[in-house]
C-alpha cells in the first residue's frame, strides 16, 4: 500500500483500463490537451494518443449521445462531465437513451458506458454549479450510481464501472480530489464491486450512514463523539444503486440508532430511500426514529455563510446523533 491522492487514484484507474482494453476511450471537455479541468486525465493524451483521449466542444448532449451510440456497437466509452451539474444538459442521453436501450430493444443492446466527473457542492460556486445529482440518477431504472469517498474506492469503483456492461455513473467528490489515502500498488489489480458498502469505522451506539463528501465529515464527527463516550459506526454506502441493504441492516441491528448524512436535498433524497428500507425491513431493531441530515431545501446561495448554513456540517450531525441517542 502507498498513499496517493483521490485524483491520482482516478488517473491510475483510467490508465489501467485504457491499457487493458482497446475498446475503452475517454471523451469530454478539456480531457486531452488541457489534461482535464481537474487534472484527472493528466498525461493520458501523451500516453494513449488523440484517437483514445478525445477533446470535445462544449456539447454535453452531443458527446454523451455519441458515447451511447458507440457503446451500442461494443465500444466502452468513458464520458467525462466537467461537473455533473453540466450533465443536466445531457439529461436526455443519460436518462432516456443509455438506460432504456436494453429494455426497448428487448435485450439486444446493452450500453457499457461510464459517465464520470465531479459531483456535489464544492465551494461558493452558486446554484448552477453545486448540484448533487445522485438522487436524480439513482431513481432511474437501468442506471448504476456509485459515489467513492476515498482514493482506494475511487480507483476500485471506476475500474469496475468501466468493465460493467451497463451505464454506470461514477460521481466523484469535487472537494476530495486532493485528499489522500492508502491504495494498493499499481501492479495489484484493485476492483471494488458496485453495490457493496463499507464500514469505515466500527462503533456500537449509533450508525451514521454516509457517502461521498459526507464520509470525511462523519469520520471527523465520530472522533469528536468518541470523546463524549458515544461510539459511532460509519457506514459508507459507496454505491447508491445498487444499494447494499445488508450492510445497512447489519449495522442497524448492531447499534439500533441511525443518522443518515447525505449531500443532496431532503425531498426524495438518498436518505429518504435508505430510511424507508430500514423501517420496512428492520423496524424492530430501531430504538429511535431515524434522522436525516442533508442540504437545506433551497437553491445553493453564493454567500459563504449562507452556503455553510445550507450544507450538512459537524454541528448538525452531532446534534442529530445526540437526538437519536437521547443524549
Amino acid at each position: 500500500m502507498r498513499e496517493i491522492t483521490y485524483r491520482q487514484a482516478l488517473n491510475e484507474a483510467l490508465a489501467e483500463e485504457l491499457e487493458r482494453d482497446p475498446n475503452v476511450f475517454l471523451m469530454g471537455e478539456e480531457v486531452a490537451e488541457y489534461n482535464g479541468a481537474y487534472k484527472v486525465s493528466q498525461g493520458l493524451l501523451e500516453r494513449f494518443g488523440p484517437r483514445r483521449i478525445i477533446d470535445t466542444p462544449i456539447s454535453e448532449n452531443g458527446f454523451a449521445g455519441l458515447g451511447v451510440g458507440a457503446a451500442m456497437v461494443g465500444l466502452r466509452p468513458i464520458i467525462e462531465f466537467m461537473t455533473f451539474s453540466f450533465s443536466l444538459v445531457a439529461f436526455d442521453q443519460v436518462v432516456n437513451n443509455a438506460p432504456n436501450m436494453f429494455t426497448m430493444s428487448g435485450g439486444q443492446f446493452n450500453i457499457p458506458i461510464t459517465f464520470r466527473g465531479p459531483n456535489g457542492p464544492a465551494h461558493q460556486l452558486g446554484a448552477t454549479h453545486s448540484h448533487a445529482t445522485e438522487n436524480l440518477y439513482a431513481s432511474v431504472p437501468g442506471l448504476k450510481v456509485c459515489t467513492p469517498a476515498t482514493p482506494r474506492d475511487a480507483k476500485g469503483l471506476l475500474k469496475t464501472a468501466v468493465r460493467d456492461n451497463n451505464p454506470v455513473l461514477v460521481l466523484e467528490a469535487e472537494l476530495l480530489y486532493s485528499s489522500k489515502g492508502m491504495v494498493e500498488p499499481p501492479d495489484e489489480e484493485l476492483l471494488i464491486p458496485l453495490g457493496k458498502a463499507e464500514v469505515k469505522r466500527e462503533g456500537s451506539d449509533v450508525s451514521i450512514i454516509c457517502y461521498a463528501q459526507t464520509v470525511p465529515l462523519a469520520l471527523k464527527v465520530a472522533a469528536q463523539l468518541e470523546e463524549e463516550d458515544i461510539s459511532a459506526e460509519i457506514v459508507d454506502l459507496r454505491s447508491i444503486k445498487p444499494l447494499d441493504e445488508k450492510a445497512i441492516f447489519d449495522s442497524v441491528a448492531k447499534t439500533h440508532r441511525v443518522v443518515i448524512v447525505e449531500q443532496d436535498h431532503p425531498f426524495c433524497g438518498v436518505g429518504a430511500e435508505v430510511c424507508y428500507r430500514i423501517q420496512k425491513s428492520v423496524f424492530d431493531e430501531l430504538d429511535a426514529p431515524i434522522i436525516r441530515v442533508s442540504q437545506e431545501d433551497v437553491p445553493m446561495p453564493y454567500n459563504e455563510r449562507l452556503e455553510r448554513a445550507v450544507l450538512p456540517n459537524a454541528d448538525k450531525l452531532i446534534a442529530a446523533v445526540k437526538k437519536v441517542c437521547y443524549a
Partner: peptide, 13 residues
C-alpha cells in the same frame, strides 16, 4: 433528434 448523437456515435465507432 435524440438519436442523431447516437448515430454520430455509431459513425465514431
Amino acid at each position: 433528434a435524440a438519436h442523431v448523437p447516437l448515430a454520430v456515435g455509431l459513425a465514431f465507432a
